[in-house]
Structure formats: C-alpha cells, structure tokens
Simulated assay, not measured.
Amino acid sequence: MSDTPVEQMTFEQAMKELETVVSKLERGDVALDESIDLYTRGADLKKRCESELKRAEEKVAAITLDASGQPTGTKPVEGL
C-alpha cells in the first residue's frame, strides 16, 4: 500500500491502489487484522474515487456551448 494519504491521491492513484486492495482481499491469503486494515483502506479509496469522479462530472457540466455546439468556455460552478 502507498504511504500517500488517500485525500491527496489523484483518481488514478486511488483507483490503482483500490484494485490492489481488492485483489489481496479476493485471494484471501492475508491475516484477519490485515484484512480489516485493507478493507478500511479500500473503503477510503472508493470514497476518494467517487469524490474525484463527481468533481470531474461537475466540471464537464460547467462547459458552455455555442449554438453550433462548440465549447465557448465554462460557467462558474459553486464549490470548485
């Protein structure tokens, strides 16, 4: 597992580590205490990925288009 705090990870970093965590848990060859730690880390990573996806969706939704469908800029989005 990475030493990077989950809240500082990019979407890609969090997703890659989440895949590693899931793989370890699915194999079932880790001790109970480590499984609990992995599950907790995985839950935090999942939450981070969901948060980053929501933020990206909000940015995409803020793109404004002209009459021909071409991007003309962005409109302000609260909280970004």
Rank of each mutant, 00 (worst) to 15 (best):
Y39F: 09
S51D: 09
D3S: 12
L18T: 03
G79R: 14
E34I: 12
T10V: 11
L18G: 01
L80I: 06
G79V: 07
I63N: 07
E26D: 12
M15R: 13
P76A: 12
E12K: 10
I36F: 09
I36L: 15
D33A: 03
T74W: 01
D66P: 02
P5D: 08
R41M: 06
K47W: 03
L38N: 01
E78L: 09
A43W: 01
P76G: 10
T64I: 14
G28Q: 07
G28I: 02
E78G: 02
I63S: 07
L53T: 13
Y39L: 00
M1D: 15
T4W: 01
T74K: 15
A14T: 08
E12I: 00
A62K: 04
Q8K: 12
P5S: 06
G42L: 05
K16P: 00
V60E: 06
Y39I: 01
A62V: 06
M9R: 03
D37H: 07
G28M: 08
A67P: 01
E50H: 06
C49N: 01
V21W: 02
L25I: 15
G28Y: 10
E52R: 14
S51L: 07
A56R: 14
V60Q: 10
L38Y: 03
T74C: 09
V60W: 06
R55N: 02
R41A: 04
K75E: 15
E50A: 15
A31L: 00
G79W: 00
V21K: 01
T40S: 14
A67T: 11
L32F: 04
T72F: 11
V60T: 06
K59W: 07
